[in-house]
Nucleic acid binder design. Structure first.
Length: 446
RNA sequence: GUCCCGUUCGUCUAGGGGUCUAGGACACCGCCCUUUCACGGCGGCAACACGGGUUCAAAUCCCGUACGGGACGCCA
C-alpha cells in the first residue's frame, strides 16, 4: 500500500512556525515513502477563513520548497459531508442536543468546581418527545453529537507508541452546529476516508481528538489510518511558545527576518529528533534521513539564534547562481560570481552583503597609525600597471614584499584597513578588482 | 480541577538492569591552519529533576513530589 498524507491548515491566519514544522515533517515522510502529499484547506469555518490566508499558506509552502501533489478545499465538499451525516444519523451514531452554549458552559463550570472532568453528560440522549417538542416550540434548534462507544480505543502511534483511551472518559464531540454546518472533526475524518489518507501526521494537541476520530473512521469506513503525533515546540525558555515566536509566521521569517527557507526547513526537520541539527542546502538529505522513530516525545525548544546560525552556514555554501536574481533585485547589479564567493563566508543574512557593496562604492574611514599610513601610501606606488584583474593582488603583494620587510599581519592589516576601513571582511584579492585602480590608489594614499 | 505525555551536558538527543568513570551533534573554550572572517583539523568544559522503594546491581523498573507541555469549544 502506498503512503498518502495530508497537511491540513485552516486559512484563518498565516502559516506559523509550528504549522510549518508539521508541514515539513509530513512532507518529508511522504517523499521518503515515495508517497502522495495532499494539501487540504480546512475552511469549514466560513466566518474566519480568508482567501488571502489561503494564498499566503500556499506561498509559504512553495517558498519552503514543499510541493503538493493534490489540493482540496473542505468548503467544496459540503454535499458529501451531508451525505455521511445522514448515514450516521440513520445508524444512530449522531444524536440531537438542545443545550445553548451558555448552558453547556454552566454545566462545565459546575463539574469543574466539583473536581469532575468537564465531559458532556449525554442529556440529549435522554430527551423525551415532550421535552424535544418543548425545545422546538421555544425556537431552539439542535446541534448534533457523535455518540462514542464506551470501549477502549487504542492505536500504535508512530511517535508516541501505544496510546490508549477509554471511550467513557471522552466527551461525545459536536459534529454539527445548530445552523446545520459540519464541524472539523467529521469533515476531517470524511476527507481522510475519501482521499484514502494512510497516515495522519499532526501536532500532539490532536491526540485526544484522534481517540474520537478512531471511532468515526470505524463508523464511516471501517478502516482507520495510522497516526503520528508530533510534540509541540516550546520557546527557548521551555515555556509555551511565546506570542512573538508563536506568531512568527513563515511570511515574517521570509520578509522581515530575511532568512533562507532551508534554514527553517533544516531546523524544523531535525529539531526534536536524534539526528544532528545541521544546515542543508537542499531537501534531499533530509528526505533520506527521515524516520519517525527518531522523533522524541519531549517538546523541543525553538531558538531563533539557531535559525541565524543555520542561515549563515547555508549562505556560506550557496552558489552564486542561486542568489544572482535576488542580488540583482536588491540593486546590487555589479556583483559577480567571484565577488560572491569571496564575500559569502562573511554573511549571516543575505542582506549583509549590502555592507560590503557599500564599502566598495562609498568612501571608507581607515583606522591606522602614521607609520601604517605611510606604508600604504608607499604601497600605492607599487601597484602594477598592467590589466586590473584577479592576478593584480598577487603581483602587487610580491612587489611590496620586495620593497619592504613587512609580512603577515603587519603587511596585510594596514592594506585591509586602508581599502575597507574594517579589520575583517572578504578576501582582498577578490575586493581589488571590484574596487578598481583609481579607488584603490586613492584609499591607499588616504 | 480531571486526564494524557514528558524531565539525561547550555541546546537537540543516544540509552529498555550490569558493557555508563553516560555516547554523539550543535554551541562554548583552547590549540593548529590562516592577513581578517569562514572552512578544516586536534583537544577541553559540560548532564541522568528530587525523594522513596524493588534488586547483588537502577539513567534504565515501581511509587510519590516538583517542574514543563498537551487535552477537557456549536475553533481547527
Amino acid at each position: 500500500m502506498s503512503v498518502k498524507v495530508r497537511f491540513a491548515p485552516s486559512p484563518t491566519g498565516f502559516l506559523h512556525i509550528g504549522n510549518a514544522r508539521t508541514a515539513i515533517v509530513t512532507w518529508l515522510f511522504a517523499r521518503k515513502m515515495d508517497g502522495h502529499f495532499l494539501l487540504r484547506i480546512d475552511d469549514t469555518d466560513r466566518e474566519r477563513s480568508k482567501e488571502k490566508y489561503e494564498m499566503a499558506i500556499e506561498d509559504g509552502l512553495r517558498w519552503l520548497g514543499l510541493n503538493w501533489d493534490e489540493k482540496a478545499n473542505q468548503k467544496d465538499r459540503m454535499a458529501r459531508y451531508d451525505e455521511i451525516i445522514e448515514k450516521l444519523k440513520s445508524d444512530g451514531r449522531l444524536y440531537a442536543c438542545y443545550e445553548t452554549p451558555e448552558e453547556l458552559g454552566l454545566k462545565r463550570k459546575t463539574q469543574l468546581s466539583r473536581g469532575l472532568p468537564p465531559t458532556y453528560d449525554r442529556a440529549g440522549l435522554e430527551l423525551s418527545e415532550d421535552q424535544i417538542k418543548k425545545y422546538e416550540a421555544e425556537g431552539r434548534k439542535p446541534h448534533w453529537r457523535f455518540k462514542l462507544n464506551h470501549e477502549p480505543i487504542e492505536w500504535n502511534d508512530h511517535i508516541r507508541g501505544d496510546v490508549r483511551y477509554e471511550g467513557k472518559d471522552l466527551t461525545d464531540p459536536v459534529v454539527l452546529r445548530e445552523d446545520g454546518s459540519p464541524l472539523y472533526h467529521l469533515c476531517s475524518v470524511i476527507d481522510d476516508v475519501d482521499f484514502e489518507i494512510t497516515h495522519v501526521v499532526r501536532g500532539e494537541d490532536h491526540v485526544s481528538n484522534t481517540a474520537t476520530h478512531v471511532q468515526m473512521f470505524e463508523a464511516i469506513s471501517g478502516k482507520v489510518p495510522e497516526f503520528a503525533h508530533l510534540s509541540l515546540i516550546a520557546d527557548a525558555e521551555g515555556g509555551k511558545l511565546s506570542k512573538r515566536l508563536g506568531s512568527l509566521s513563515v511570511k515574517d521569517i521570509q520578509e522581515s527576518e530575511g532568512l533562507e527557507p532551508m534554514a527553517i526547513v533544516s531546523l524544523m526537520a531535525r529539531l526534536g529528533t536524534s539526528d544532528p541539527i545541521e544546515a542543508f542546502g537542499d531537501l534531499k538529505p533530509l528526505i533520506d534521513s527521515f524516520d519517525f522513530s527518531k522523533f522524541s516525545r519531549n517538546p523541543p525548544k525553538f531558538d531563533t539564534d539557531e535559525l541565524i546560525r543555520l542561515n549563515s552556514k547555508i549562505l556560506h555554501e550557496t552558489d552564486f547562481s542561486d542568489v544572482e536574481t535576488r542580488l540583482h533585485d536588491m540593486g546590487l547589479k555589479d556583483i559577480d560570481a567571484d565577488f560572491w564567493k569571496g564575500v559569502r563566508s562573511n554573511l549571516e543574512k543575505l542582506e549583509d552583503i549590502q555592507q560590503w557593496w557599500d564599502i566598495i562604492h562609498n568612501p571608507v574611514a581607515a583606522n591606522m597609525n602614521e607609520e601604517d599610513k605611510s606604508f600604504t601610501a608607499n604601497a600605492a606606488n607599487l601597484l602594477p600597471e598592467g590589466p586590473w584583474n584577479e592576478n593584480t593582488w598577487n603581483e602587487w603583494i610580491g612587489k611590496i614584499k620586495e620593497a619592504t620587510d613587512r609580512k603577515g599581519k603587519t603587511l596585510f592589516m594596514p592594506l585591509r584597513q586602508a581599502l575597507t576601513g574594517m579589520d575583517h571582511g572578504p578576501e582582498l584579492p577578490v575586493l581589488l578588482p571590484l574596487l578598481g585602480p583609481e579607488k584603490t590608489k586613492q584609499r591607499l594614499q588616504g
